[in-house]
Design a protein around this nucleic acid. Sequence first.
DNA 1: ATGAAAGCGCTAACAT
DNA 2: ATGTTAGCGCTTTCAT
Lengths: 335, 335
Amino acid sequence: MTRKSKAGLEDIARAAGVSKMTVSRVLRGTPGFSEDTRARVMAEVDRLGYLPNRLAAAFGPAGSSTLVGVCVPRFTSSLFGSLIESINATLARLGYQTMIGSHDQLPEEEEVWLKGIASWRPAGVLLAGRRHTKATLDLLRDMTVPVVEIWDLTTQPIDISVGFSHYDNGYEMGRYIAGQGRRKIGYVGALATRDTMGRTREKGFRAGLAEAGLTLAATELLQDRPSFYAGYYGTETILSRNPTLDCLYYHDDEMAIGGLAYLAAMGIDAPGDIGVAGWGGMEAAAILPRRLTTTVVPTTRLGKESAEALVHRLNGDPVADVTVIPTRLVPGGTV
Amino acid sequence: MTRKSKAGLEDIARAAGVSKMTVSRVLRGTPGFSEDTRARVMAEVDRLGYLPNRLAAAFGPAGSSTLVGVCVPRFTSSLFGSLIESINATLARLGYQTMIGSHDQLPEEEEVWLKGIASWRPAGVLLAGRRHTKATLDLLRDMTVPVVEIWDLTTQPIDISVGFSHYDNGYEMGRYIAGQGRRKIGYVGALATRDTMGRTREKGFRAGLAEAGLTLAATELLQDRPSFYAGYYGTETILSRNPTLDCLYYHDDEMAIGGLAYLAAMGIDAPGDIGVAGWGGMEAAAILPRRLTTTVVPTTRLGKESAEALVHRLNGDPVADVTVIPTRLVPGGTV
DNA sequence: ATGAAAGCGCTAACAT
DNA sequence: ATGTTAGCGCTTTCAT
């Protein structure tokens, strides 16, 4: 089934009247051939439609793979979508191929993914997971390749960390909302049973409120993944149990927008009757009738810098252990 | 830099007192070993933390790679996000690893991506591109692996095709909108200079309108990629030039929702003053105050069926050359 | 500037 | 049930 009808180094060498080694040098630009030879070799490469076999190259003692593994919670989120877009574009530009995985906030799934990926001997991996299993950490150590932890900043980076503090994001929003005069504030989260970064933001949020002498009046943690729907129904639920809340902070913008849709459907005015704040800075948040108050995360920059950090490490260039990507709380018209 | 500190088949064989070949058989479950041997081998595998080297396995004469390449226009779209999610989940479940790429509707970018991927000798590829360069077609042929064209249905599938007709989607919406009594209809598209499937839907849309004796009254093709913003500004533009339009059909739901945001901001009522229809069936479309009229595309099913088709072909199981994934026009409250 | 030889870790084919 | 041999296509080393 997987027959190779293709020419190899040997075939080109024969056709060009040189040795395999010379062809290899020409192809990789390693010194050791004349201009005349180069031209002859390249002519044959084109004529025979030579397709390199990186498997063989990566397999050999040299072991130079250009495969990079990237694992995120999921792809169905505007934020992770643009993060992947940026990482992939950056890696592709630098000559690497991206292998993906999603763990749905389950460290065990990340572990399963990593085992499958590790056997391909990737040049490095980027992980957007909150937690890692012991087996994952052991494997990462054994792999002896650069590991970039992205999205959150970890206190103990395995290798390189590029991201920002979710705790600080929540804290900042807590202070902002308290400063707007809101007093009975609720939090609507998702993936209740899993350790998401949203929970970290919630912790920071509580601390920010505490700074102003407030406590979180209600919390609604849904089992579902964050989504527009989840925000819609989560709002319905939290308000049915706590009708007097005057502000809601959401796991992310999609949920906040879903919440706004619920409020609009019920004729509840935001920010008049109730304030709404999201997180992430998705594009849609900026074109709402009233722009959503949220924390903007520069996903494109984060993706680019994390991919570049990995490649710098591979090239032996100096890389900071921790790179902070600044986020920005953007007050909108909803709180 | 890429040193392997890991045990190989040889090490396990020595430790278990058998040959490499026996270890290989145990690991792959190929017949030819006793239960006693199996237990002994597996004990050593665990003890030594053996990590298989698929590079070597795929490289050999057997050439059994479990790498699959997937190329879509972009990742920053709710539809492609859930498509990738579904493809990746399905492939992972079946034991494959996903390598990604995006071509931004440029066949040349798909070609560049494919060349990078092909050298890793993937087991197969899934392509969501509208068009392919000649070099791409040649390379796909030379690769001798299954190729699944997804998203659109092609008249001449290279190998396997899983998708639906974008032309029919547009046609159906054209007839529907005409049937709703709209008469001065405009189309707001994106990526004007590229051959997108949106253009195919537009053609079908025109044909659907023609069926009712109507012609498209205005077209606004933006240079930008489809997005909420693009829909917002595209609507502003088309209406400033054609103030009397009574309905707008958009490249996708994100643009339609952006359009609705513009209309709301300007105090223009939908569907009262102007009708709005999108395409794709993104989740947000269903929670708007008035549900968006759109064509729902079952991205999860499409992803699953296309990935399964690829694996069936690899397993030698029968596969239909063309699989139609039905879409559904869902009338909402916007037209 | 060029070539010859060795070997990466694994599996198919062929013994025993 | 188990072992031995050969070789996948490339790059590294060490000649010349």
